[in-house]
Design a protein around this nucleic acid. Structure first.
Length: 215
DNA sequence: TGCCAGGCCGGGT
DNA sequence: ACCCGGCATGGC
């Protein structure tokens, strides 16, 4: 089963998500950091609380780690995330002199990704979220669902590391299909395809799911 | 109750 | 190049 068939089957099962602009790149970055290894209920509460506590990102940059950690407490991992958010905002202010990441649109995808990953606490998944959701670039954020389900479907070698999965999947998935692939793989991974093992018997991507018949 | 959630870093092999 | 512990709250 090739990538085009999988994209089509996912589309039949979950619909074709319509592209819509998300947040500005800096807000997307903060949201992505808060979502790291955290349920979306907890992380979105933390983001709302952060916005409600501080009126601007400049205020967050000047706040103490303790105060930021308190504001995002409901998200979990709050101490380490508060340190990362503060140091990232301070770093952007120092290097760019304003808290604005729109300049990333002028960079190539590899350049923009490298710049983001240079920030402490920003890995491939977080950088990918900023590039795809805020800037509309054809980059695939490989989170646990994308990683696990892609291996289950046989799209990539089950032994590939998460880092390697990023490279492999970006070669496989057509740029124009990345957004819907990401959205629908998450839908599939959150509902049906939840088991951690690489293959299973109940992963039903319609009749053609290659995971059918495995145990 | 115990396990897990849209990662990433630092230290060890 | 991998592997692993740490980080921490809220939901089920």
């Amino acid at each position: 089963m090739n990538i085009d068939q999988i994209v089509r089957l996912l589309g039949q099962k979950y619909g074709i998500p319509q592209w819509r602009p998300h947040a500005d790149p800096l807000s997307e970055l903060i949201q992505a950091i808060l979502s790291q290894n955290t349920s979306d209920v907890n992380s979105s509460r933390a983001f709302q609380s952060l916005m409600a506590t501080f009126s601007t990102w400049e205020m967050v940059a000047k706040a103490s780690v303790d105060d930021i950690a308190e504001a995002i407490k409901s998200g979990g991992l709050n101490r380490i995330k508060a340190e990362r958010i503060k140091s990232i905002l301070e770093g952007i202010l120092e290097s760019r002199s304003s808290l604005d990441l729109e300049f990333l649109t002028e960079l190539s995808i590899p350049e923009a990704k490298a710049w983001l990953k240079g920030l402490h606490g920003v890995g491939p998944k977080t950088a990918g979220c900023v590039l795809l959701f805020a800037l509309g670039r054809p980059v695939l954020p490989v989170d646990t669902h994308v990683y696990r389900v892609s291996r289950r479907l046989g799209l990539i070698n089950s032994k590939a590391s998460p880092e390697r999965a990023h490279e492999l999947l970006e070669e496989i998935v057509p740029p124009q299909a990345i957004y819907q692939f990401h959205i629908n793989i998450l839908a599939h991974g959150r509902s049906i395809c939840r088991a951690r093992r690489p293959l299973c018997h109940d992963c039903a991507l319609g009749e053609g799911c290659p995971s059918n018949g495995h145990s």
